[in-house]
Amino acid sequence: MKAENLHLHYGGHVALDDVNFELNGNNIIGLLGKNGAGKTSLLSLIASYREPTSGLITVDGEEPFENAKVMQQIAFLYDKDYSDESDKIGEMLEGIARYRPNFDKEYAESLINLFKLDREKQIKKFSKGMKSALNVVIGLASRAPITLLDEVYLGMDAHLREAFYKELLEEQQRFPRMFILSTHLVSEMDYLFDEVIIIDKGTVLLHEEIDTFLAKGVTITGESELVDQFVGSKQQLNVQKLGNTKSVMVYGGLTEDEYENARRLRLEISHASLHELFVHLTKEDM
């Protein structure tokens, strides 16, 4: 999947501004961004819900918009309004299965059991958590080669989310495909991702493999003057001070020599979490 110079404007609002990236392979990609950063806009372009104002998005070299072959291969699940949905879950999944060539009904049944969804209840009467779980069931059981999940898990409670994360990883082992999971709650999902894209104010701030990205965020803690001396001109994401002790989060990684130097200066080095990096990279005053 490739996005080239993607712009999306509507109603006088710039939702996406010159977005470029390339995704290859069956990876789980975390699409991170604050509320209103442009995550849903980007996913809706990939899923052909709308056309870009300018620029190009291609999947296997073909534009997805109004392309039956490509659209069938992309499943987009979001926090949908089910308040008018009088069908029960079985009826709804029957309908979806007609249009999803890889839909696995048996797997859908096992997911319904896993998430303890009520088969006899109308979907409009589902709780918020059950509606979220329903979206997860559709997203996983459709087995679309490109599955886009736009914060659908936010309505689930902690136990259900854990069950979903576990199931996602198992499913990725069984039927590897490209998952793009958007979220602004990063801390509990970081271990799922192979790659991350951070989007901010409609532009891609960074796109990296998760290990490469995490290796770049380092926190140096120690005597204030020594820390200042060590950090030098590195990009500082966050600074905390208590008495004469200072802790600075830098972005860009350290060389072997720098690690050695830190040990010599008795500075404590720790890696920043994805959550910390995300929060500080997308801070308003950055």
Binding site: F76, K80, G95, R100
Partner: peptide
């Protein structure tokens, strides 16, 4: 509903 299930506007 249909676009959400990967159906084109033409179909």
């Amino acid at each position: 509903y249909f676009v959400g299930n990967g159906v084109t506007r033409k179909d």
